[in-house]
Design a protein around this nucleic acid. Sequence first.
DNA 1: CTGACTGCAAACCCTTTGCAGACCG
DNA 2: CGGTCTGCAAAGGGTTTGCAGTCAG
Lengths: 169, 169
Amino acid sequence: MKVEGSEVDRRLEKFKRAAKRAGFKLTHQRLEISREVASSLEHPDADAIFRAVQRRMPTVALDTVYRTLRMLDELGLVTTLGTRRESARFDANLGHHHHYICVRCGMARDFESSAFNALRIPAAAKSFGSVVATHVEIRGICGRCETKFARQSTPRKPNRPRGRHRRKT
Amino acid sequence: MKVEGSEVDRRLEKFKRAAKRAGFKLTHQRLEISREVASSLEHPDADAIFRAVQRRMPTVALDTVYRTLRMLDELGLVTTLGTRRESARFDANLGHHHHYICVRCGMARDFESSAFNALRIPAAAKSFGSVVATHVEIRGICGRCETKFARQSTPRKPNRPRGRHRRKT
DNA sequence: CTGACTGCAAACCCTTTGCAGACCG
DNA sequence: CGGTCTGCAAAGGGTTTGCAGTCAG
């Protein structure tokens, strides 16, 4: 299953413009990887993209795929599914609830809403299969980050919480 | 910020009952780790739980925390935040859209819904900070999995997609 | 041409696993 | 006491990084 051709082209053009504007070179690898991402409906992971691109460009390396995806992500040209990639986080609240997530610091909090609990599932979603649960995720900038970074411009992406979890070594 | 004491106790009792019923021994470590998870509102990750428990029980090891969390997860006593832990997945669809995710195989698909786009944010959520985006995640079992596993009982948890992404080695 | 980019390999982080001793029931 | 569980250390899987050669502009 693929994204319609004209839409792929539109996305690719946007990619090219944004990359050029940001001073990135338009290498073959980047174009092929971008095309693959732009044309997939399946929310592929880096390895899937790697394998697909490799078919057309056998010398490409997995880390180039990662680097390109990161570039696209930082330019705001793709998003990543689910909460940002970090360690798994646990939730002992088993009631039906929803989440507020700060895109800056990753802070997550539960909240309840009977309106959200009662959401009617659109037919488009039902067509994929049965429904077990629905859950609303609200992303924003939490109060603490808002005051802390008041004068920085809003970033496209949360600052990566890389290396936040120190180990005692 | 902590969960109210009586609620913590209630959760802990539930944990104990479930663990005992499933034939797990109630060791000090498991109880302390469970208590920590049950009393946190912050959706901690394994390392945060480890550090907290370590204060009261300096000999505890990080892997025991992981093992206990996995136990709680498998007993259905906690959930994990966001999509299941696996590799990062990318999405080139930048329009406002929502996701259907199969809890069996991890399949993810976009769908659109103007009703979902128009959701009114509850005050409870606004109190955490500003809102950038809201996104509905519908979890279910996709058509393919439904036919494939028609006679298996519904699992509490998706089958871990561990090692699904083969490398060519 | 020249700095940015790639491929390679090694490092890193989070998580899991094999093993021998410790402890619950 | 016996089998489960813990702590330790090492392995695993995904992702990132340092380096030297390569290529876009």
